[in-house]
């Protein structure tokens, strides 16, 4: 297996300015290709900016949009790229999408499944949630798993992608920096949380994790960058600087996946049929279709213990 050069496009998209962002993507695709990259990854909503609100319906694209075709064409010959935008479906739902473009064609689209709508986030108000978590084959010779930001705050996402055949997990993000407590790693609570999540996922799925987070400012939110590549042992191979815009190149040896999966056969030992069985039981119990088998008599729904707290 050939070594792979991954280009992390840690950019600051212009909010709502699709044309400017497309132009920037085309420039960086050319720069990455010239630098010998095989895979270029752009952040969540890199083509539109994040805090869109009612602009979402004004910058949305159908999958046959000529601007996507233009970006796909820039991957010919031989390049792979992950770009993110607002996808409008035929029935006019708007999704936060990440697409794998390869060798001139749009190969796979992932629609963000988990839309944070709490605290500073209001995504469910403006967007529809995706319904699938599927790995995709890639010309890179490995399975790829695409996920968008909050998708990785749900442990099922990386697990499903890895069991579905992904060896390279790609998370594209627009993560706003917050919690500057002095006690945090890198002085930023958000960075600390993300790093522990991604190292854990890389190790538990024995896969590469590529995380690309944007920089720049939308309204009150400052995005912190800190894009990373983590190897299948869970060890970080590269950490981009916080807040600096740039195209960062990282070389990885995809054969590390095989070595690690033979050394640490966690995926071999997964028990998807057991997990599915227990999920089915939980689903029936949570819907009230059957009694909660693990609860004490007299306990309230969703709470296993009968005693008052």
């Amino acid at each position: 297996m050939q070594p792979l050069r991954i280009a992390l496009a840690q950019i600051a998209p212009r909010l709502g300015d699709l044309e400017a962002n497309v132009a920037r993507h085309l420039d960086l695709l050319a720069e990455a290709r010239a630098g010998g990259a095989g895979l270029v990854v752009f952040p969540e909503l890199g083509l539109t900016g994040y805090q869109l609100q009612d602009l979402a319906g004004e910058v949305s694209m159908r999958l046959d949009d000529p601007r996507l075709a233009q970006l796909a064409a820039a991957t010919k010959p031989g390049l792979s790229a992950v770009v993110s935008f607002v996808e409008e479906s035929a029935d006019h739902r708007l999704f936060i999408a990440a697409a794998l473009l390869e060798d001139g064609a749009l190969r796979h689209v992932h629609r963000k499944v988990f839309l944070p709508t709490y605290g500073m986030f209001d995504e469910r108000r403006f967007f529809a949630a995706g319904d699938a978590i599927r790995a995709t084959p890639s010309q890179l010779g490995v399975g790829m798993g695409l996920a968008v930001c909050e998708d990785f705050w749900h442990v099922s996402t990386p697990q499903l992608l890895a069991l579905d055949g992904a060896q390279l997990l790609v998370n594209v993000s627009s993560s706003p920096g917050r919690d500057l407590a002095l006690t945090s790693e890198a002085g930023l609570g958000t960075a600390t949380s993300w790093r522990s999540l991604m190292r854990t996922y890389a190790q538990l799925t024995t896969s590469f994790v590529v995380f690309v987070n944007r920089v720049g400012v939308d309204e009150s939110l400052s995005f912190w960058g800190g894009s990373e590549v983590i190897g299948p042992t869970g060890a970080p191979l590269f950490s981009a600087p916080l807040f600096d815009e740039g195209l960062y190149m990282v070389d990885v040896d995809l054969a590390d996946v095989r070595r690690e999966r033979i050394t640490l056969p966690l995926l071999r030992d997964e028990r998807p049929e057991l997990v599915a069985r227990e999920w089915r039981r939980l689903i029936a119990e949570r819907a009230g279709l059957t009694a909660d088998t693990t609860a004490e008599p007299g306990s309230a729904p969703g709470f296993d213990v009968a005693v008052e707290r």
Binding site: G177, L180, A181, L182, T183, S184, A186, G187, L188, L242
Partner: peptide, 8 residues
């Protein structure tokens, strides 16, 4: 309340 002033 102490923050990382470089990050800030």
């Amino acid at each position: 309340l102490a923050i990382d002033t470089n990050v800030a």
